[in-house]
């Protein structure tokens, strides 16, 4: 196990951490960053907020857990990101409540356009591409409408393909809660995806 310099200075880090380890961290983050952004974007509905959450999660992982084993990075990163998202959600809820009390809300202006992040594939989209895009927008809207815990459980289980125990650790809740949240999310999304056969 690598011991840390109490001052945590950069030179010490550069001397101690191997180039291989730095490359491995880079590969890990490169592989996960886009999905992490999409998860944060679905949760927040805002590109800048999502970017902040992902960057903060990356920084936390590198600074605090970069020297841990490579196999630990995935669970740790998911846990950090999901906690950041939950924290953002709570802060936003409180802020919106204050806005409702003391003035007209600006939530509508603050919401990002879900379609913005999906770039056009061609200039003249085929029927299938149109259907796919419609299904994507519908799915994203349905995911955003889910309670946060259901949204997190579904994305971690279905997209990241974590098992129940890993999802529970990432969400900081019991395995039973994960099963409940996931089941409810699937019930809701079944209708949306059934209506948009792709």
């Amino acid at each position: 196990m690598i011991t840390l310099d109490p001052q945590g200075d950069v030179e010490y880090w550069r001397r101690t951490v191997t180039l291989d380890q730095a490359k491995a961290l880079d590969r890990f983050l490169a592989a996960i960053e886009r999905r992490a952004f999409r998860m944060a974007h679905i949760a927040t509905g805002d590109v800048d907020d999502a970017m902040d959450l992902v960057q903060d999660s990356m920084l936390t992982l590198v600074k605090r857990y970069g020297m841990r084993g490579e196999s630990e990075w995935g669970p740790l990163f998911h846990r950090i990101l999901q906690n950041r998202i939950r924290d953002w959600y709570r802060r936003t809820k409180v802020r919106n409540r204050w806005r409702q009390w003391f003035g007209p809300g600006q939530e509508e202006d603050d919401q990002g356009d879900p379609i913005q992040s999906v770039a056009d594939q061609t200039q003249l989209p085929s029927d299938e591409q149109v259907a796919l895009k419609q299904a994507t927008v519908a799915l994203e809207q349905a995911l955003r409408a889910l309670p946060l815990r259901q949204q997190q459980a579904f994305l971690l289980r279905a997209w990241e393909e974590l098992d129940v125990a890993q999802t529970a650790r990432a969400m900081g809740c019991s395995e039973g809660s994960v099963k409940t949240h996931y089941f409810r999310a699937v019930q809701t999304l079944r209708k949306v995806l059934g209506d948009h056969q792709t």
Binding site: L4, D5, G8, D9, V10, Y12, W13, V17, A22, L25, D26, L29, Q55, M58, L59, L61, V62, K63, R64, G66, M67
Partner: peptide
């Protein structure tokens, strides 16, 4: 930016 950050407690 994250990779350039200094790690450590």
């Amino acid at each position: 930016t994250a990779l350039e950050a200094k790690p450590g407690r």
